[in-house]
């Protein structure tokens, strides 16, 4: 039963991922991405990582994809023309693909016995252990992430600020006689 479910959800995940790449319409791609994320959430449930599964649905299938859809619709992205690869590009792409596949195959054949198997219940598995790690080992990175968000916020303001008037705005250095009417 477990095996059957694993293959079922893997097929859903992979099929969704394939459709994301092949859809002509960006909105369709984003919706298929939700299918992929839901399939992955189901796989996490099979691994008994219930909390991770919930997060996957809430954060990725919910918030992130909605953000994608928002941007796609805001920019009014049309399904682009189908681009044809030239002879050289197709050849190069084929070689790159072959190299990638052979690399992955070499990587994952015959290393099974040398690996330390990951424990079935990782940090993200249960809410309790996750919360514990978040407030002990990962307390500092969590706080630092707050600083990162501060940087991102101020950075957006700084870079998108327009300098419209020829006179420098209030509080800028008096040396600002140049840089008329340019924008970021």
């Amino acid at each position: 039963m477990q095996d059957f479910l694993f293959y079922l959800f893997s097929a859903i995940t992979l099929g969704g991922a394939l459709l994301v790449v092949t859809s002509r319409n960006a909105v369709n791609s984003a919706v298929f991405l939700i299918v992929t994320f839901l399939g992955m959430a189901a796989l996490f449930v099979l691994l008994e990582s219930y909390f991770l599964a919930v997060l996957q649905v809430l954060v990725y299938a919910g918030a992130v994809v909605v953000l994608f859809l928002f941007i796609i619709m805001l920019l009014d992205v049309k399904g682009g023309r189908r681009r044809r690869l030239g002879g050289m590009s197709a050849f190069a792409a084929a070689i790159a693909g072959l190299l990638l596949v052979s690399g992955v195959v070499t990587l994952f054949t015959g290393i099974g016995e040398r690996m330390t198997p990951a424990t079935a219940t990782g940090v993200g598995a249960q809410l309790h252990s996750f919360g514990y790690a978040l407030f002990t080992t990962h307390l500092l990175p969590m706080q630092v992430t707050g600083f990162l968000l501060l940087v991102a916020m101020i950075g957006v303001i700084v870079l998108s600020k327009r300098l419209t008037a020829p006179t420098a705005p209030r509080g800028a250095a008096p040396a600002a006689g140049e840089n008329k009417g340019t924008s970021a």
Partner: peptide, 19 residues
């Protein structure tokens, strides 16, 4: 000395430089 702390610190040090 923890990989996650390390990565987050590295990001914190490099993002302001981009700006």
């Amino acid at each position: 000395i923890d990989a996650i702390t390390l990565v987050v610190s590295l990001e914190l040090s490099s993002f302001p430089l981009f700006l």
